[in-house]
């Protein structure tokens, strides 16, 4: 089975990044400054890392053209195709990838036929990324798909479906995004990229896992916001309720320490009051909060490891001292006490 692997990779903003991406959807949350923009370049074989190893299906993509031909790639900043027209550029790209489909048919299928005769350098960044995505999807049996911010171009739902369809076929799909909302919407296995390293894999549900221990916030959309807010204000599971009668009269923001208890409290009161709930969604933390939580978790892990190591060292020292004491020769008997003024009687 194909996997994408990074082994202690140093390249651009990546600082010793290690990751293994199996088949299915993996979402990396990280900004370009964290190495999010560099990651597709390195995995796509466009940049050889300064140190470390990159492997796609066991081979280095920067040295293996066959691997690159089978990699679907959408970069953060897609360069324009080097050709007079989009169709001409696509024809060359498809020929290099060994694809037999006509570029015009591909453009037609993706609803991009209007760009066929356009000069690639005149297309905007989003259009260039849409073309790269169309080309990535045209690969019949891709080794992997690596996409930067997939929900920032084209139709979100459609792109999301296409990513999941590829992942369901057993293709490793790696998505890099700086948006927690997009990561939450995409689902899949989530990995956090922080200052060039993959630091942790939060589980599901994503929001409380991103900042463990933080209070949960629920957005409740309901026409009976006033009565529900009044009922929730007295509930033990709720620590705060925000309701703005003028700006968002049908929107409530409910906070509490435990997301499960909070959700149950909202549902219980809504049922008791006969209030219809339009939606109930969990607020995602800000990226800064996630970073702070990561730093806190690392600090806690470090402190715990230090405490354990210190205790073990102390135990070893004490054991050694006991061992020394046990194996030492018996102390010589004390000399007889000397009497004052001459020999003993």
């Amino acid at each position: 089975m194909t996997t994408l692997e990074l082994d202690a990779v140093f390249s651009g903003a990546l600082q010793g990044a290690t990751l293994s991406v199996p088949a299915g959807l993996t979402v990396v949350i990280g900004t370009p400054e964290d190495g999010g923009a560099e990651l597709p370049l390195v995995l796509g074989g466009l940049v050889a890392p300064r140190r470390g190893a990159v492997r796609v299906a066991g081979r280095d993509p920067s040295r293996t053209p066959d691997v690159r031909a089978k990699l679907g790639l959408v970069l953060a900043d897609e360069p324009p195709l080097e050709s007079r027209t989009v169709t001409e550029g696509l024809r060359q790209a498809m020929a290099l990838r060994g694809l037999r489909e006509e570029p015009s048919a591909l453009l037609e299928r993706r609803g991009l036929a209007a760009w066929g005769a356009a000069e690639p350098s005149r297309l905007g960044a989003e259009a260039r990324r849409q073309l790269a995505w169309a080309l990535a999807l045209a690969i019949s049996e891709p080794l992997a798909l690596i996409v930067h911010e997939p929900l920032a171009f084209g139709v979100r739902e459609r792109t999301c479906e296409e990513l999941h369809a590829c992942a369901a076929r057993g293709v490793p799909v790696l998505v890099v995004t700086a948006s927690l909302r997009d990561a939450s919407e995409l689902g899949g296995s989530v990995v956090l990229l922080d200052r060039g390293r993959f630091v942790r894999r939060p589980g599901v549900p994503l929001a409380p896992e991103l900042v463990p221990g933080a209070a949960a916030t629920l957005f409740v959309s309901t026409p009976g916001a006033r009565v529900l807010a009044a009922a929730l204000a007295g509930d033990a599971a709720v620590t705060a309720v925000d309701w703005d009668d003028t700006l968002a009269p049908e929107q409530l923001r409910v906070r509490g320490p435990d997301v499960d208890r909070l959700s149950l409290a909202v549902l219980k009161h809504a049922r008791e009051l006969g209030v219809t709930l339009h939606s109930l969604s969990l607020a995602l933390p800000a990226m800064e909060e996630v970073r702070a939580a990561t730093a806190g978790l690392w600090r806690a892990a470090y402190d715990s490891a230090l405490r354990t190591a210190t205790a073990q060292a102390r135990e070893r020292e004490e054991a050694l001292a006991r061992q020394r004491a046990a194996s030492a020769p018996p102390a010589p008997p004390p000399p007889p006490p000397e009497t004052e003024g001459g020999a003993a009687p």
Binding site: G44, R68, P79
Partner: peptide, 8 residues
């Protein structure tokens, strides 16, 4: 770069 990217 473009040639290499597409598997050339």
């Amino acid at each position: 770069a473009e040639l290499g990217r597409h598997g050339g």
